[in-house]
Amino acid sequence: MSEWFPSASPESLAARAELLRVLRRFFVDRGVLEVDTPLLSQGTIPDAGIDAFRLPGEADEPDRYLQTSPESAMKRLLAAGAGDIFQICKAFRQGEAGRHHNPEFTLLEWYRVGSDHAALMREVAELLGIVLKSDGWQIWPYRALFIELLGVDPLDEQTSLTGLTDLAQSRIGVLPESLDRDAVLDLLMSHCIEPEISDWGMVFVTDFPLSQAAMARCIPMGDVDVAARFECYLNGKELANGYWEQIDPDALAAQLHAENTRRQQRGLPLRPIDGRLLAAHRHGLPECAGVALGVDRLLALKLGVEGVAETISFGWDRA
């Protein structure tokens, strides 16, 4: 097929338009305000697993980054008193090209003031139930999922990196060299757990290791502290990532610096810490929970197509 031709069929484009209408109606009906924040910002996030596109500034202009998600800007709105808000926008992540990834993709992100991650999971399940006409969902703590499917406790200090690496090696084969603990856990998740839960329907994985907290707050869970974060999986495909948001500015600053440290360890360029986000937190972020959901993947699931390119007018190779 020629390069100028769309990667999505006319039916798929129509389904996209309909999906966007359904999503907007869902939030408007619930009194959630639609917002629109800048795609190009002076700040970005230091998340070690995410690589932002950087646009060098001309002359005296500062560098700008294409947003990897609208999180920072939406939190600044929350701190300014916006209340419940949602946004459907483009987000950009360098290098993330594959069957289930497009470096430019569509995100639905929303925040609920006064909610925690448990309440937000219910709302995600309701929304997905409407879109996919499905019902039923289950919650699995990260720890329980690893114990159930792999027989290993990822949060137990007795579980060594060597032990995890040996397990991954026996399941997956030859591994890349010098993986840190989280990288090995990520491999076990993507190679061993995701295929196992592919016929479990809608699964919320919660209570992540603190090292994978990103901007979630830390909560006690039995004998250990965990991140109040969830990932929503549908048919074994990750669809949404949510937090009971960290609102303590000092804790957030520490988490962001920890991400930069991780970047350094992995040999990645450091990212500036977004001072405006921290200032908004110091002013006061209300108690809230927020979630980002991949719209292209949701559409791919709804249409039953294999790759996200079939849901996007012009996928990465043709854009």
């Binding site: 697993g49 993330e96 594959g98 990834h101 989280d182 990288a183 990520d186 998740m189 990532n241 992995r266």
Partner: peptide, 14 residues
């Protein structure tokens, strides 16, 4: 060549 990336984790290629 399949690009895999769990959650906010590290990216791998299978």
């Amino acid at each position: 060549n399949e690009f895999v990336k769990p959650g906010k984790g590290q990216a791998f290629n299978r």
